[in-house]
Amino acid sequence: MPYGFTLDDVGFLCSGAGRAALAAFAPGGDPLRDVGAARRQVGDEHAAALVETALLRARAAGRFPDGWLWTADALEQATALPVARHRAARLAAVAGDRVVADVTCSVGVETAVLSQVLGRVVGSDLDPVRLAMGRANVPGARLVRADALAPAVRPGAVLVADPARRTASGRRVRRPDEMTPPLDALPGPDLVVSSAPGLDFGLVGWAREVELVSLDGRVREAALWSAGLVEPDGPTRRATVLRSDGASYELTDADDDTADVREVGEWLVDPDGAVVRAGLVRQFGARHGLGRLDEHLAYLTGEHPPDVGRAFRVLEHGPYAEKSLRQALRRREVGRVEILVRGLDVDPDRLRPRLKLAGPHAATVVLARVGRGARAYLCAAGGAGRPPLTR
């Protein structure tokens, strides 16, 4: 159960004594010993807050600025910095001189990024503890206590929101009316909302554009943009693929989607998850000169690998049967195999031991329903193009 911070905890952690204690305390990995050491250092009243803050800072290391205050929930839902910077750059192009209100600011991640890019930013939250942490994390930021449904800004401001995607019991929600705050209750007309990738976007009536965003191969969010923040006749679906090294690309449903179904070529291509979830596989294929393996599959194929996404060199392929796949792997002396499955009821973890792998080589096996049959594609391991990304 995560520790529940109080305002007294935040006051202590921000004091000279608290900062000194945090600088001197290093968790050892044994909870009982850690608590005991913290009690000897700061007494019973603040020991739990000291331990929890040290542990959360360790989890945040390398992803967020050092020295921030967190709650466990705030860290779990915090927007990754490259994603926040991308959104801030898009907003800078459309917000003009209007105020931007981060109406679910939590401990201040998005407010900090927006302030660096835009300057005219107000952050707000109902949780007084998170607000106190935000004031410590982002000194000088304008943070106020307010309900996201009644922002403390004048009409005409651009609203940014990241509603909670879990219930109080921890269950993930898939409907916009189950989020906190509910998406349809957010005041408009100009807003962008970070939501779960699995959300039923059709239930959000005001969303003019749905942007699926991935970072280093992991789909992080679906950003919903209202009509006032996008071009009137612009795309309605967008995939934004970001990498920590600064590389990125975008696809939209306004791009060419000419990618016919064809027989498998030398390469099998697995587009990024943002492309797949945005329904832009054909656009990806058209951009890179690839065809579709099947009209219902996200796999593409061609004679040359693209420089983004994962691409596997096909060594052999045929109808899928466990016995014939086992024989092919044995013939090639494959002892390690990655198994990817699309459209078939096959559990890779259960299949792998039945293949009786033995040998010095590695391979990738793609099992997919193509047309009305199951096909197996035995490919060289790893993939080509940029370093492999895992969805």
Rank of each mutant, 00 (worst) to 15 (best):
R310A: 10
V230T: 15
A311P: 01
T258I: 11
G205Y: 01
L280I: 08
E231G: 02
V264T: 15
S214F: 01
V219R: 11
V241L: 11
F284S: 03
L315G: 08
L224I: 10
G205I: 01
R243L: 00
V219T: 15
A311L: 06
P232L: 03
E316T: 14
R313I: 06
G285W: 09
V308F: 02
L199M: 13
R243G: 13
S248K: 06
T258W: 07
E250T: 15
D257F: 01
A222W: 08
G291L: 08
E221N: 05
Q327M: 08
Y320K: 08
H317R: 10
G291H: 04
L290I: 00
E333C: 14
E209P: 01
A259C: 15
G285H: 06
V275N: 09
L329S: 09
A259L: 13
P197W: 00
A328Y: 04
V204C: 02
R313N: 06
W206R: 00
L212V: 13
P305R: 00
A321I: 04
E333I: 09
D272L: 14
S194I: 11
E303R: 04
A227G: 04
R220N: 10
A207H: 03
L203M: 08
H296E: 12
A227N: 05
D307T: 05
K323S: 11
L329N: 05
S195E: 03
A278T: 03
V275S: 09
F201R: 12
L212A: 11
E211V: 14
H317Q: 12
L215P: 03
K323R: 15
A278Y: 03
G279S: 07
L224V: 10
R287F: 05
E295T: 12
L329V: 13
A223K: 05
P232G: 07
V230H: 12
H296K: 10
V314Q: 07
